[in-house]
């Protein structure tokens, strides 16, 4: 699909400030970091989760456990996509039972990824609660799922694309709105 760049939604500074703010909000809403664990959804959600965890550590001076979740095997479209997506690593090296889990992803769109992630998480144990943190909420939900922590709400049309770039994978930090050409 050919697409052209339309607008920069967030630049590197904004990405950094936003992650800091979200870290503070998570600590505030969780009333500290007791029993707090962070789980990122592959691929960019994992890097965001690690960054949020680092910010929380610098606020609270204590380490927060971070895990990664690959939702490929829990997708609801196995029958309708052209071929099977590559399965990536899921690594949750701690028990999530009775923990406060913050699930992290880059973009919240239809909500189907989060649905899959919730199903998978629950196979790992019974958390006390699960909250959702996303860098961008672009609207157009197809399931009744809402985020608890949002970097930026940015309503879009279904013809647009929201690309989150992160240094760890893309070499730079920013969020770009693209449109199908």
């Amino acid at each position: 699909m050919v697409s052209r760049k339309k607008k920069v939604i967030m630049d590197a500074k904004e990405v950094s400030w936003t992650i800091k703010r979200m870290a503070h909000e998570i600590v505030e809403k969780s009333y500290g970091i007791k029993d707090l664990v962070i789980v990122g959804i592959q691929t960019r959600g994992v890097h965001l989760a690690k960054r949020i965890a680092r910010e929380i550590e610098s606020i609270e001076n204590k380490e927060v456990p971070v895990g990664s979740l690959d939702i490929t095997l829990y997708r609801d479209d196995v029958d309708s996509i052209a071929h099977q997506p590559m399965v990536k690593e899921t690594a949750i090296p701690f028990d999530i039972t009775d923990k406060k889990v913050v699930l992290v992803d880059d973009v919240l769109f239809a909500g189907r990824t989060v649905r899959a992630a919730l199903d998978e998480l629950i196979d790992f144990g019974r958390p006390k609660l699960i909250r959702l943190a996303v860098l961008i909420d672009r609207g157009l939900r197809e399931l009744p799922i809402q985020p608890d922590f949002v970097g930026k709400v940015y309503p879009t049309s279904s013809k647009e694309l929201v690309c989150v770039n992160l240094k760890e994978v893309d070499g730079e930090d920013n969020v770009i709105l693209k449109e199908e050409a």
């Binding site: 095997l73 829990y74 997708r75 590559m86 399965v87 899921t90 199903d119 998978e120 196979d123 790992f124």
Partner: peptide
């Protein structure tokens, strides 16, 4: 072979079953 690796990781979970089929 590369796809088998994440499937092997599943065996260490308490719920070893996943839904794709």
């Amino acid at each position: 072979l590369e796809t088998a690796r994440p499937f092997k990781d599943l065996f260490t979970r308490s719920v070893k079953k996943v839904p794709p089929l």
